[in-house]
Design a protein around this nucleic acid. Structure first.
Lengths: 263, 263
DNA sequence: TGGGCGCGTTTACGTCGTAAACCACCGGGC
DNA sequence: GCCCGGTGGTTTACGACGTAAACGCGCCCA
């Protein structure tokens, strides 16, 4: 427990490079020359800036200096564009040097790195993350927020190769995904995504509901308003890992797929 | 641990009455005579049947035998209608006799009942639940899935009156909400909400991606496809309660708001 | 030189949310 | 009895959306 205080390393500003999504394809021609990656990348940026509700084929076209219909050369429709957006965003994990595909330092390290990686993409694209959570998964057993066969495979490999039985690995996968989803969804929505409607300027936007009938709430409001997400995340993750450790000890080395010991 | 197997009591069919949302107002007049509750209730049903994407003012009007614009007498717009929908759905908790506003049998019982109550509404309205999760909360400290000041107050009261310190209660609230959100969102999305597009009839709808390159996945697919959500939920809830118990023992009776002992 | 074709534009259709005007009815004061 | 405001639903209309279809431009290879 490295006493994670002060400068949350998962928050975008705190990190130098890495873990972005879609810089560009070939930087050959200047403006024209569209590209699927370019379109999807622009959509990601647009959503990050204005929210999903504002994303429109015409507006996205405009941002790329092009008419709306041009986008249909690269994307079958708006719905599939959104799918491509979530895929692109989680694929940001592959570019993250702190996330490992294989458990080179044990399964706990693997899960830690993966969790923080996912948290990093969630915080980097707060407006996209709810999409990751709610878009129906291709297969029911591929769950958010890691909606990728490759990551699922990596996960299962990491755990089974660390001594988890098949059943324990599957159970761990379920617990892990729902932990990540719950925490990150709340954290992201707490950082007030884009304030949906345009808030009128001038005047304190405090609607400040009447808390007179809610004494505890009234008293605890400052405490509730504090952002403890980083510490929360760390603690819940720690707890989850312990729980999974128990799972490993209980029904672990029951003829695991590969070596039954540690990596 | 009551060995919750076989007949999941939170799934709608397994329960007789209670915990529905919006039966009707005054059953006086027959067809005409709209009503805000009626409008919102119809919206809930509509979403449950066809999904949010299909909900349209005109269609909802049609279902009520009325033109779209008539709805605007009772609801300011589509967006606010959706807000009203989530409010109506979580208000279903108040009608649930198994959920208590006060911890009459200890805080663990209180949290258990509340969690199962929320799970029940999630399973009763699977298509509405993502809305509960993603709609921006009024205040940042009112979190999904309990988006209600009254429930938040009830929660805080239950814990502090059971010996939790203010800080511990707030921490518990955070852990509890993110646990609920993660588990229920995944469970609901797993029960394949409405299959978005109309799936073509005839022919096995198995798109069956190629799993040759994913050996673990290939091997574990049947296990992954099994629905273990009820047991999962129970176990994670149990674990959470233990964790909160530890929290209570560690920093519990530090001058709690009310009586520092048990209720 | 020409002809196709990759890539973006134009035009057009149906649907959406919703503002505004409209109207039909109904209960109460004169 | 008669008018009259108000309640509750309809009609009409507008602008924006997603997207099908037809259209053109310009480049590359023959």
């Amino acid at each position: 427990m490295p006493d994670t205080r002060e400068p949350d390393p998962d928050v975008p500003e705190e990190r130098s490079g890495a873990a972005d999504a879609m810089p560009a394809g070939p930087p050959s021609t200047g403006r024209p020359g569209l590209d699927r990656r370019l379109v999807v990348g622009a959509a990601v940026e647009f959503i990050d800036e204005h929210g999903i509700g504002e994303l429109t084929m015409r507006r996205l076209g405009a941002r790329l200096g092009v008419e709306a219909m041009a986008l249909y050369r690269y994307v079958p429709g708006r719905e599939q564009l959104l799918d491509a957006v979530v895929e692109a965003v989680i694929d940001g994990l592959y570019g993250d040097p702190d996330v490992l595909l294989r458990p080179d330092h044990g399964w706990q390290d693997y899960l830690q790195r993966l969790a923080h990686g996912v948290r990093r993409v969630a915080l980097a694209h707060p407006a996209v993350f709810p999409l990751i959570a709610t878009r129906p998964p291709a297969a029911p057993w591929v769950r958010p927020p890691l909606r990728s066969l490759r990551w699922l495979e990596s996960f299962l490999d990491a755990l089974t190769s660390s001594g988890f039985s098949d059943g324990a690995a599957v159970e761990a996968y379920r617990a892990y995904t729902s932990f990540l989803l719950g925490h990150l969804l709340l954290e992201v929505s707490q950082r007030g995504v884009p304030i949906t409607a345009e808030d009128e300027p001038g005047g304190s936007s405090e609607m400040s509901v009447d808390l007179r009938e809610y004494p505890h709430l009234d008293r605890l409001q400052p405490m509730l308003a504090q952002d403890e997400s980083a510490a929360e995340f760390e603690e819940a993750l720690e707890n989850l890992l312990e729980r999974l450790g128990g799972l490993l000890r209980a029904r672990g080395g029951r003829r695991a797929g590969r070596g039954s010991g540690k990596a």
